[in-house]
Design a protein around this nucleic acid. Structure first.
Length: 200
DNA sequence: TAGGCCATCTGGTCCT
DNA sequence: AGGACCAGATGGCCTA
């Protein structure tokens, strides 16, 4: 296995891993802070077994690999940017603990669910009181997340009240019992703290 | 020191 | 053919 280390691996010669990769534009507007930059450069210096290679075919191959690496890097940076944007719209925490990637995704999932519940309940109450129903519906907040990923399920269609993120067992923060809904009657936005998985 | 998180590299696969 | 996407591997940093 480990073809990475195979003798055919020639990635080394052209792996100076100089800072050019940092400055290489990368779609990232948010360039790393100075100290972060150093850190990244460190991380980036990642040689794998160096073999000697001469043939032009191999050089071409290496160049293609380097380009692919660069694209992959940018792709991941874009992904991280999107994740940061997602963090930006989620309720912030006083201690400014940065959510990890998985926490961000789970929290967002729960947060969306909570907003949907809020709207649903508001709709119900409006129906009782004769007030005009809200125009917003959960379906406008979010396309029903596809079930399956991470073994989580989301049944937005049934809209039985506990279409709660019945959801990930791996998400300890998600409400699983009706009593957990109490937060809905409380502060709608910042009552979601308990939804930050694994943090609170 | 172990474990979690992360960035990066890499080869494979699919798509245009 | 080249790019996008993906998953595995690897090593650095940080914290309990």
């Amino acid at each position: 296995m480990d073809s990475v280390f195979s003798d055919t691996d020639t990635s080394c010669d052209l792996f100076p891993h100089t800072d050019d990769e940092d400055s290489r534009g990368s779609v990232r507007g948010a360039s790393p802070q100075p100290d972060q930059q150093q850190l990244q450069q460190k991380k980036r210096r990642r040689g794998r077994g160096c073999g000697r290679s001469d043939s032009t075919a191999q050089v071409v191959k290496k160049n293609r690999r380097l380009k692919a690496n660069d694209r992959e890097r940018n792709r991941m940076h874009n992904l991280n940017d999107a994740l940061d944007a997602l963090r930006g719209v989620l309720p912030a925490f006083p201690d400014e603990t940065k959510l990890t990637k998985i926490e961000t995704l789970r929290f967002a999932h729960n947060y969306i669910w909570a907003l949907s519940e809020t709207i649903r309940i508001a709709d119900l109450q409006a129906g009782k009181t004769g007030d005009p129903p809200l125009l917003l519906s959960p379906s406008l907040l979010v396309e029903a997340p596809s079930p399956g990923s991470d073994g989580c399920s989301w049944s937005s269609s049934g809209s039985s009240s506990s279409s709660s993120p019945a959801y990930c067992a791996s998400s300890p923060g998600s409400p699983s019992a009706p009593e957990d809904y109490s937060f809905l009657q409380q502060v709608p936005v910042f009552g979601f703290r308990s939804f930050a998985p694994g943090i609170y």
